[in-house]
Write a protein that binds this DNA or RNA. Structure first.
Lengths: 232, 232
DNA sequence: AACTAGTGGAGAAATTCTCTCCACTTCTGC
DNA sequence: GCAGAAGTGGAGAGAATTTCTCCACTAGTT
């Protein structure tokens, strides 16, 4: 890790950066988040710059080395996690629905981008660890409440929430996009959530859109066989 | 794709290869499967050779180019899928338990290694497509039966079984290994399976071992903070 | 024991990735 | 709207990684 980049400049609220520079910085973080999720934390940096629609030099100016960038992504993600959780607590009709809301929002916020942190790619200094703990605490609180109210089975633990969201965040192979429009992750999360409910609570969530059948695979196979497969 | 390697030699049963060569061929396929799952289908080939405990030249002799190797891994994986499904059909007490058995076995067989196929990295010639269809058919039959018997909710489709197994096959960040001994994937699969059950069927599976709490994360964080983190 | 299929690893060639430099563009304050 | 500062993109040298061949050596097979 190097000089810590100029992250502090923006985060400590001193609006010293030019407006367009701040916007670019955010675009880079988001592109990096997506690329890290797709290709791991060693993904080429110029691919990130390209995805962000920014020159490679801009990326290097903001984040002198890869660790600075990873760090920014991780902090950004933990903070999105806190937002999602607090929002869910405020808006869920009960603690189970708060949990449900949180997990769906966390999917959208691509919480899986915390992976580099969990994989040891990030130095856990006080700032990162504080963010981690803050995020963990809110999630734990939602889970505890849901269990106290008897809405979630007792044998579920913290890791069953967070690790599944991480899993669901990671992209499926490209064919999934050929098969369907919607997002299978949210559908599968709903099934999982039904599995989290307390015993005897037989009601089932209505599952969201993409229903993928064996026949769908056949169709795609034929499409690939005939025409060219440039749409992958 | 090139000359098709000498896969046919072994697969058509003519035991023309020397015994040690056949063993090495299998070791390479298994190593490739694991590395492809971990690092994607572009992973360096010498890493695969190293993992297989074999020289790089041996790998190139068996599989003249990367596509040959991918192809072999995919065929191997589809065939493991058929084995797992047939075995599950024979051994499950009812169709729901057959489905459960299949999914757990499929996890162990790392079915996620079919990803390169699904991601368009493999030419779907008749052999590959036959294997795909054979595997798909058995799984579909198990699911159909379970639904007819009212053991699995009606709104579940083929893709909800296969894609979730693929997701669960992919490895979690290294920290998961620091936190726990067991395999979270099987635990999370059981929760998902509870969510697949037909409405009103309130019983819950007893979840297997690794329970990961927020406190576990704290412990690891402290461990990393003090000593060196070379155990990652 | 002799013959041949099989093996490992060094290293040249090709490819990919990193990171700097600088001429040019865009914001901001006045 | 102007001046000056802040920000930008992309070419390309250098570094690092990856591919793939060659050949002296080893180990199954008969």
């Amino acid at each position: 890790m190097s000089e810590r980049s100029d992250a502090g400049r923006k985060e400590s609220g001193e609006g010293r950066m030019r407006a367009d520079a701040q916007r670019n910085r955010q675009l880079i973080i988001e592109a990096a988040r997506d690329i890290f999720i797709e290709s791991g934390a060693d993904a080429p940096l110029d691919e990130i710059a390209r995805r962000a629609g920014v020159g490679i030099a801009t990326l290097y100016r903001r984040f002198p080395d890869r660790d600075d960038l990873i760090r920014a992504v991780v902090l950004n993600t933990f903070s999105a996690m806190v937002d999602a959780a607090q929002d869910a607590e405020a808006n869920g009709t009960d603690a189970y629905h708060a949990l449900r809301l949180f997990m769906h929002r966390a999917l959208d916020a691509k919480i899986g981008a915390t992976m580099p942190a969990l994989a040891g790619r990030v130095v856990f200094d006080d700032e990162v660890d504080g963010a981690r703990l803050a995020a963990g605490t809110v999630v734990q609180r939602i889970l505890d409440t849901a269990q106290e109210q008897g809405l979630v089975r007792k044998d579920i633990a913290f890791g069953d929430i967070t690790f599944m969201v991480i899993r669901l965040t990671r992209p499926l192979p490209a064919i999934a996009k050929l098969l369907v429009d919607g997002d299978l992750a949210h559908r599968h999360l709903d099934i999982y959530l039904d599995g989290l409910r307390a015993e005897g609570d037989g009601e089932r969530a209505e599952l969201p859109a993409p229903v993928v059948t064996l026949a769908d695979f056949d169709k795609v196979r034929k499409r690939l066989a005939s025409g060219r497969a440039d749409d992958l």
